[in-house]
Nucleic acid binder design. Structure first.
Lengths: 198, 198
DNA sequence: CCATTGTCGGAACTGTCAGTTTCGTCAAAT
DNA sequence: ATTTGACGAAACTGACAGTTCCGACAATGG
């Protein structure tokens, strides 16, 4: 997930030469996310990111293998502190809160996620990274659902993987295809549909 | 959906000059679909389609406004006769059959749909066309679900739009992101989840 | 038969963009 | 002071979408 420096100093010789400027990394990621979020539809070029960040293209390609990798890391960094995993003891409450938080974050960073998806569809490294990112998010949701299932709030025979596909599927579908909103109301309704008492 | 001829003959003067060669249209669409289905991951270029179809690029751009439009029409044409809408009188049976058929078609033309999605994410006309295509598919499913709802096989308060988002969402999610299979078993399980007795 | 209208292939062209390379500069560590 | 490596500037390559120009050819109307 983090950038892959091509010149890794050997363990024996700790370091020589000028050190990497951390401000560069941050500037690139921040401006990449900004540009992506702003320029709805139009693709964001590496040149544009470089110029906006006040950084040379060379430097970007020193630390990231491709444009997709930059976008991916920008998304991951933004998404990191967006959603907390609730644990109130009631599945319906936990799920609705989680979904509402997630949807809000997705609505805010929608253009960014669309741009990332576009990249993932034409570049293997971005696709791989995105699958890892998505898997991490799934793990959070799975834990939440399993707690509910263990408490008997969800039938034991419910296939959680399928349920998660329905949830995240709906989210991406609305984001990418239908372009319909992901409101708190949708979170509530979806929660009702999933936890519908048997 | 159909190509938009830039030189529409006026109604008063029926036609003059050489007529359009229908074989060209078919060759372009067929080879576009083939290339798209085959070249998993790598984008298909207009030059490649033109060469494979034995047609000049000029001719393609005479009849289609953009690459996305070509891909879209190729997909639509392939999808036209793939799925029939069952009406057996039992929602569970109808839905499972419909989903199994749909999933089989999607599995077969997965690369094609991914290519189309990539195009739709960076081009407005392709995105617009895809939304229309998707809406048409939704209408079929909606009719199927409504019949079941009227028979009381689905609670009256079930939001069909949300249900369809869950179904098509799962499909696209697996196709685009998870890259997990869409088997007949998934169709059965999803049907159970949707028609779960209250 | 012949002028007109429009289709088609070939090929050159423009513009954009990802990714590479070269060069010169500057900072940190020995 | 010398080495190692980070950085900017800028030129470059190659791919590709979309455009334009040309010349050939086919259908139609007179």
């Amino acid at each position: 997930m983090s950038p892959d420096p091509p010149h890794v100093p050997a363990a024996s010789r700790p370091h020589t030469g000028r050190r990497r400027n951390p401000a560069v990394r941050q500037a690139v990621l921040d401006r990449a996310a900004d540009l992506l979020a702003r320029s709805e539809g139009i693709a964001v070029s590496i040149d544009a990111i470089a110029q906006a960040a006040g950084v040379s293209k060379h430097t970007i390609y020193r630390w990231w293998p491709s444009k997709g990798a930059v976008l991916l890391e920008a998304v991951v960094e933004r998404a990191q502190e967006e959603v907390t995993i609730p644990d109130t003891g009631a599945l319906a409450t936990d799920l609705e809160t989680f979904l509402a938080d997630t949807f809000r974050a997705v609505e805010r960073e929608g253009a960014l996620l669309r741009g990332l998806m576009a990249e993932a569809l034409r570049e293997t490294t971005a696709a791989q990274g995105m699958r890892e990112f998505v898997a991490a998010r799934r793990n959070e949701l799975r834990a939440l659902l399993m707690r509910g299932q263990e408490r008997g709030e969800l039938p034991a025979e419910t296939d959680l993987e399928l349920t998660m596909d329905q949830i995240y599927g709906l989210m991406w579908y609305r984001l990418l295809i239908a372009q319909s909103p992901l409101t708190a109301g949708v979170a509530a309704e979806l929660t009702r549909a999933i936890t519908r008492p048997a």
